[in-house]
Design a protein around this nucleic acid. Structure first.
Lengths: 326, 326
DNA sequence: ATGAAAGCGCTAACAC
DNA sequence: GTGTTAGCGCTTTCAT
């Protein structure tokens, strides 16, 4: 037996389909009718069809999350925030990891599935020109800094570099994310750019290397950076939480004392970084996710968005988590 | 200007909507017509409406993932596998974290949104009776062991306990997941049950404690278990990857030598566990996710499922990753 | 090979 | 306050 439709309920309640719709959705209807309809709906185990509603309403009430990688805790956190807030706003979140992890096919995805969603959120990368054209308004990237905001206080890499400079460090090595696809510009790329920009006149020596955004990547990049032929830097900046954890692990296994022999600061905070005493720049991934969900919700029903659980935009977006590694 | 519909294309191509549909979906149509239609579609930038298709086809081609927690790497891995394989099969994955992380509202979710999805996958918990009734066929849980399979080789906790027994351990402490909601039965609960069942006659002393499935939880539970008033166990079993990592960190900070002073084995593998030398039981989360996606796909088009990227069911589901912590 | 028509489940005008 | 009608975009018989 197929699920009951609104027509069935209407018949059972002795009213018309539209009345059922109104009764169920809080439109104009007499108390008696509402009761009648609820009764009928209950006895028929009626549940409204999502698809039917969407088709006629023109909204899907769902957002796509294009996650660059499910193995980066900062992105998962952002996803969590996005999802939690979206749920509060009555939106659901559909996962769209770019095929092959390269982001190449995002354009194809956008072209095909754009109107399955009320919003498309990019986590862990910025929007490419070509994508902007296709995605239009719906496309929102999380994790980009600058633009309409004061770069100084919002750029985590600059904050990290500044912190090290104040502590008197002169030679700093940045371990960033290396992508298989060199054309890809995501926010890790912008972090590296920012690193060189913000420290070029502060440090005697600023170097960088790229690796996979994993603990293994951080581990091996650290070994290379620290035991390599050139002079050992006095401080390391790790571009992601996983890199920082791998880095801390490597330094320990190399028998280097932190921060005595070398300092370490990580971009993106992580519970384990706290446990390991690694100073980090908290980029507030979770809050960013929440905020984005609100942005999407606002495009749908500008008036009715409940912002109560979302930190105000004026709140600082990155903050130093001072621990013992610097 | 609203997006072009199939009717627009039909008009532009000088044919009927149904012909357009056939031409576009590989139905019977003359080559000339197909070409004609493609041309018109292209010039109008026509893209088929997902909603329209779903409404008339009756399939949503999407599955819901009910993830118990986004902070457990094993579940994220499973989600990754589910998602990757689903994508290969033309399915999309919508994220549904149980409200409040308590799982209480899953029933409500199921009742409301059941037919938005072709399948509903539970990650990190088993299916409750009440949910089974509502969810029916569509409801699949990942991460349960036993049932139709030989428990001996598939139960990770039993494997861990057995490994420790062979190494001569007599007093073992299991650190499992404590839930806010005691009624909840997820697979961590079954892991604890399995622990006591599988070691009751092997060890002189078997104890357990519960904590949050996080590195902090693992850390503090380990401190308690190891420095508590009672005799220190000779080995620890950590119920999740995060607990194992927290545990390893705690043991190090306590100055205990592993495995000299105390052994540690973790359930669920993790890159960092490898780096830290923690022996684990790999439960194959990613593969489990993939398999589930195939199961769902098979219910949709039993014939056309491409199993090439999925490990055979006969493959061992849990395996010992021997490292230096035991 | 193609067109006409019905209908998927629901909502929104508009009339009563 | 409620019923009628129309239509969201597509697929799918059934004729032609």
């Amino acid at each position: 037996m197929p699920p009951a439709t609104i027509t069935d309920v209407a018949r059972a309640a002795g009213v018309s389909p539209s009345t059922v719709s109104r009764a169920l959705n809080g439109g104009r209807a007499s108390a008696a009718t509402i009761d009648q309809v609820n009764r009928a709906a209950a006895s028929l185990k009626y549940r409204p069809s999502y698809i039917g509603r969407v088709l006629s309403a023109g909204r899907t009430d769902s957002v796509a999350a294009v996650v660059a990688s499910l193995r980066r805790s900062a992105l998962i956190e952002a996803l969590g925030g996005l999802h939690a807030e979206a749920a509060r706003q009555g939106l659901s979140v559909t996962l769209v990891e770019p095929s092959g992890g390269q982001g190449r096919d995002d354009a194809a995805f956008l072209r095909r599935d754009r109107d399955r969603f009320d919003g498309i959120v990019l986590l862990g990368r910025t929007v490419a020109e070509s994508e902007r054209e296709i995605g239009g308004e719906k496309l929102i990237a999380i994790g980009s800094y600058g633009k309409d905001e004061t770069v100084g206080t919002l750029d985590p890499t600059a904050t990290a570099a500044e912190h090290l400079r104040r502590l008197g460090h002169r030679s700093v090595h940045y371990i960033g994310v290396a992508h298989a696809d060199p054309e890809r510009t995501d926010y890790d790329g912008s972090r590296e750019t920012s690193f060189f920009r913000s420290c070029s006149d502060s440090f005697v020596a600023a170097t960088s290397s790229g690796t996979a955004p994993t603990v293994e990547g951080g581990f091996s990049a650290t070994v290379t950076a620290v035991t390599g032929s050139s002079a050992r830097p006095s401080a390391l900046i790790a571009g992601t939480a996983e890199i920082a954890i791998g880095s801390a692990t490597a330094l320990r296994q190399l028998g280097l004392h932190v921060p005595g022999d070398i300092a370490l600061i990580g971009i993106e905070d992580h519970p384990l970084a706290a446990l390991l005493g690694v100073t980090t720049i908290d980029v507030g991934s979770e809050a960013r996710g929440r905020r984005i969900a609100c942005d999407v919700a606002k495009t749908l029903h500008p008036e009715a968005v409940d912002m109560s659980a979302v930190p105000p935009v004026s709140a600082p977006r990155v903050s130093l988590r001072l621990r013992s590694s610097c």
